[in-house]
Design a protein around this nucleic acid. Structure first.
Lengths: 142, 142
DNA sequence: TATTGTTATACTCTATAACTATA
DNA sequence: TATAGTTATAGAGTATAACAATA
């Protein structure tokens, strides 16, 4: 454990650094996605649906940490843009899938994410990136 | 570099994981700070001022990534709470320092941060925490 | 001219509560 | 009773533009 003196600036707290780096990620990714007319959250939702067609809105929300109530406008907008097809699963659940246009924009989203990842983590070498991924995964899963 | 197939879920993107872990940090820290009547950003501002008395509002903002315009209500609230003393540096700049009450609450904030850090990163051992800090630092400084 | 601090304003994401329709 | 989806609403953080006062 670090000594008190070494923690005398907020930049020495891992939690603070995570928050700052996260802000940078979101900011640069927002810029990178802007030409596609998509926001970060929308791209993430699109990504999840692409990987699990017929998934319901609630399931997307649960898996991405987005509240049901906040999924409604997200799905509405992606549907209006013509990227989503909503089909009744049963009387209360709706399966979400990508339209042809959705598949198309998804491939572009995937490309943007790959490029962004490549440039954002360019300061880390291959081993360091793997380490980071592993550490974050441990924190994420608890 | 990971192969495309391994990146087929958003959880395999470091940027996404950072965003999710950051949300968790902010959420748990918000809860931990609530008894003190402070929000995360306010606590961070308090922390920076404690470490650099007489610092100006603009300087705090620049160092913490908070826009000047957004510092105004933050400083106003912390002053109303009796934690900050604002003293003119020159005609346009104002030096910010902690009052006695501010020093008191700051010690409590420091305690909350230490406890939070300890519990949040408990899943990582000492070496892993040092690794994480180092990796985040590289990303943060570019 | 550049900087400090301010005001006004808007956007994104998140959070809760209450409602309906269905399982 | 529990779940899916919706509506309304509020809070927190962030962003820009414009302004007055000062350096």
């Amino acid at each position: 454990m670090l000594e008190t003196k070494e923690k005398s600036e907020v930049e020495h707290w891992a939690g603070y650094l995570i928050k700052r780096v996260s802000s940078q990620v979101i900011s640069t990714l927002t810029e990178a996605l802007a030409p596609l007319g998509l926001r970060v959250t929308e791209a993430t939702v699109l990504y999840r649906i692409a990987m699990a067609p017929k998934i319901t809105s609630s399931e997307v929300g649960r898996s991405l940490g987005i509240k049901r109530a906040n999924m409604t406008p997200l799905v509405a907008r992606l549907t209006e843009l013509g990227y989503l097809r909503v089909s009744a699963q049963d009387g209360r659940s709706q399966g979400l899938s990508l339209t042809e246009s959705g598949e198309n924009i998804f491939e572009q989203v995937r490309g943007v994410l790959e490029t962004h990842d490549e440039t954002f983590f360019a300061v880390l070498n291959r081993k360091e990136r793997a380490q980071l991924l592993s550490l974050l995964d441990k924190l994420f899963r608890g």
